[in-house]
Simulated assay, not measured.
Amino acid sequence: MRGQDMKIRLGIDAKWYFDGPPSGHMVVKNLVDEIIRTGDDRFEVYLFLVNKSKTKAQSHFPAHVKLIFLPGIPNLLSNLFLVPLMTLIYNIDVLLFQNFSSTWPARALKIAYIHDVLFLDYPQYYTKAEATYFKQMIRFAAKADQIITISNCEKERMQKHGINVPLGVNVVYHGINKAFKPLHAYNENDILTIQAKYNLPQNYLLYVGRVNIRKNLIGLVKALNLLQNFDLMLVIAGERGNYPELDGYVTSKQLWERIIFTGHVPEADLHLLYARAKVFCFPSYAEGFGLPPLEAMQCGVPVVVSDRTAMPEVCGTAVLYANPDDENEIALEIELLLSDQALYNEKVNQGFAQARKFSWTKAANEILTLITEAYAGRENYSEAQAQPRL
């Protein structure tokens, strides 16, 4: 039994902190930074990292953070076998897993941080290999004590599919990094450097994220083709996946000169790429949360998003919505912003207000509170069980 004055040993799956899927890396990095920064005397933090990041990690994290290095094997296998083994060795009290939980060790409180289960309702956007891999996430989620997810939309999806755990599914919204700022916060030299680096036009629509079918870039490009009365280009920032339909359409409509594919953009460049945009567009078919629209809002850029899944929950009334299946509607909402300066300014101001509702500090504090309450509940239950019966 742990004394009440002892710190909770919190193990965090941070293998994506330095490298990993772009969205996963961003979430892990921001949450871990805030947990370390805002954590109090209740916690002793242990980070699970990969061996290849050892030198970088040892010079990066403060000395009071315990670092545990693991081989760079798939996250599923690492979380099933290596993380639990290290949990036993280091006598960790609470484990915060990324996506894949584990069936052991029994004594540790297991919390699965599951970003989304979109593949259950939208299998058409995933390969068979991806769907098979993610189904294991659902299988092992049932072994967790608690699940944290990122929107009420995803919580409802999990409940619909019968994903239940003893301490329930709890929602903690993502935050926005404070480094995202409006254009007036930057000096002229930095602006000109980014313009030259990415060959940015004076006016451009911006999309940030993966370039795949689920994100509906084909709908956005079709909308661009309808906006013939504006001197406007489209900048697509993100890693390109296999998307032959998009390439075929761009070629058939001779749109290559109106579109800039940047590929992966370093975070430091991304801030200004947002701030320089005229309108941010996010016509995705399905999102568990959808952080890029909020990042754009914090940069003072008005936003057009799809009216599906978590988008209305996250964006509220600060954006214009469009049916992602209708490129005419997407084009119309963009045109409304470009043609009506009063509406444009209104959505910029509403965007600032909406973005202020989300912060990584708030997210980290909510997660730590959930952990504290869950651990206290388990300790109290264990103490009650240990009391002799009269």
Results as ranks from 00 to 15, higher is better:
Gly219Tyr: 12
Ser339Trp: 15
His271Phe: 15
Thr309Lys: 14
His25Met: 12
Thr103Tyr: 14
Pro283Gly: 09
Gly351Thr: 03
Phe48Asn: 00
Pro123His: 05
Ala363His: 03
Glu34Ser: 06
Gln341Asn: 07
Phe230Lys: 04
Lys253Phe: 00
Pro166Gly: 05
Arg389Lys: 10
Lys181Val: 05
Ser359Trp: 02
Glu313Lys: 03
Gln385Phe: 10
Thr251His: 02
Val250Phe: 02
Val301Glu: 07
Lys7Leu: 15
Ser102Tyr: 10
Lys143Trp: 06
Lys52Cys: 04
Thr361Val: 13
Ala342Gln: 04
Gly219Phe: 15
Gln228Ser: 03
Phe282Glu: 01
Gly72Lys: 10
Leu227Trp: 02
Met26Glu: 11
Gln146Ala: 06
Pro293Arg: 13
Trp256Gly: 01
Arg210Gln: 15
Thr372Val: 07
Lys181Gln: 05
Ala353Ile: 04
Ala129Lys: 07
Leu343Trp: 07
Val65Trp: 01
Leu70Gln: 10
Glu257Asn: 06
Arg276Gln: 15
Arg240Pro: 04
Gly24Tyr: 08
Asp33Leu: 12
Thr38Ser: 10
Gln98Ser: 14
Asn187Met: 11
Ser339Asn: 13
Ala112Glu: 09
Val171Cys: 08
Lys160Pro: 00
Met158Asn: 02
Ala142Pro: 00
Ala376Leu: 09
Ser252Lys: 03
Thr38Lys: 13
Ala376Met: 05
Arg42Trp: 06
Asn187Phe: 11
Leu120Gly: 00
Lys128Arg: 08
Ile147Ala: 03
Gln202Asp: 14
Val265His: 05
Gly248Leu: 01
Ser59Met: 11
Leu76Ser: 13
Ile191Ala: 06
Tyr198His: 11
Gly11Thr: 07
Gln354Met: 13
Asp247Ile: 00
Pro312Cys: 11
Phe134Ala: 03
Ala386Gly: 06
Phe289His: 08
Gly351Gln: 01
Thr55Cys: 14
Asn225Val: 02
Asp13Ile: 04
His64Val: 11
Thr103His: 10
Asp13Cys: 14
Asp307Val: 01
Asp325Met: 02
Ala355Cys: 11
Asn177Pro: 08
Val235Ile: 13
Ser252Val: 02
Ala131Trp: 13
Gln298Arg: 10
Asn170Ala: 06
Lys7Cys: 12
His25Cys: 10
His60Leu: 13
Asn323Pro: 04
Leu118Arg: 07
Pro292Asn: 06
Tyr122Gln: 01
Ile35Trp: 09
Thr127Asp: 02
Asn229Ile: 00
Asp93Asn: 09
Asn75Val: 14
Asn30Val: 07
Pro292Gln: 06
Ile114Lys: 08
Ser252Asn: 08
Ser339Phe: 11
Ser53Val: 15
Ser101Leu: 13
Ala364Met: 10
Ile114Cys: 08
